[in-house]
Nucleic acid binder design. Structure first.
Lengths: 151, 151
DNA sequence: TTAATTGCAAACAATTTGCCTGTTA
DNA sequence: TAACAGGCAAATTGTTTGCAATTAA
């Protein structure tokens, strides 16, 4: 499953003369099937369940490789650890409910457009961005039913 | 100058039974007159020019204190170091030039409004947010003249 | 075969902490 | 002077790197 990323990785490896090794397959697999934003230690923990011999150093080397290849996206949520997610999903931003810690993904084309405009006005093009809104429930009124994901 | 923050800090100290010491004054001063986003090491460097005896550990303890008191805001721009800026300025977001590390502040009322709308649509009110756009210079076209601040 | 890759441990960089002395209220 | 702070160095944490052994192509 998620063969799109696997194929992508194979292509990248061929292009760069890199080897498609066991550890790399395992780590890529862990990441493509993650629905959250695991950090390196968590990736290592999950990879170790599949192949206990994988070293944390290999995880770091591999995520860097995957990120450089555009297969992975990394996020610094501000707690000191770098978190990763597959880059093949549609871009989204995050609403974080500070009372529960829940993360709600959202997307606003208008905001996407505006930031594009702002960057261009300053003579830049956007490489990436991060938009996190920390919220709490409105005291009045009802919250829209929402599927939310943990970090 | 910037007595607003100094007063604020004095008030906080009184309220919490904390002492207004030499090192704390120096570090607060360095931060209130900073127009950029220095990290702890840079704050320490600047503080050392005023009082060479200040230890980096004191910088870390003091910025944490200041942040907990709402006098300072911290940002994790993604290069592993935490950066600080006084919390008394008008809210703004950041464009980060990934090639040079320069940080450009911007403000978009429209984005402010949109995020308000998004939060409300989900049944939340905004507590705070963080919006960082990582950019690189446009290959073509000229960049708008811009006063930019080093990180 | 052989250059890329890995595991391991040591190295690093940013930040935190323990401890004992110095200082502020 | 008594509790709070600071200096210093050691400890932690997350991440990177050197190197000899291993492995994919």
């Amino acid at each position: 499953m998620n063969s799109k990323l696997d194929e992508e990785f194979e292509r990248v490896c061929r292009d760069k003369g890199l080897r498609l090794t066991g550890p790399r397959r395992v780590i890529l697999n862990v990441l493509t099937k993650a629905t959250d934003h695991p950090d390196a230690i968590e990736v290592h923990r999950r990879a170790s369940l599949i192949d206990p011999g994988i070293a944390i150093a290999t995880v770091y080397r591999t995520v860097r490789l995957l990120e450089d290849s555009g297969i992975l996206e990394s996020h610094a949520f501000g707690d000191g650890r770098t978190r990763y997610e597959p880059a093949d999903r549609e871009h989204h931003d995050h609403l974080i409910n500070i009372e529960t810690g829940d993360v709600i993904e959202f997307r606003s084309d208008e905001i996407e457009r505006l930031q594009e405009e702002i960057a261009r006005a300053h003579g830049f093009e956007i490489v990436s961005h991060r938009f996190e809104i920390f919220v709490k429930p409105l005291k009045t009124g009802k919250r829209k039913k929402e599927s939310r994901s943990k970090r």
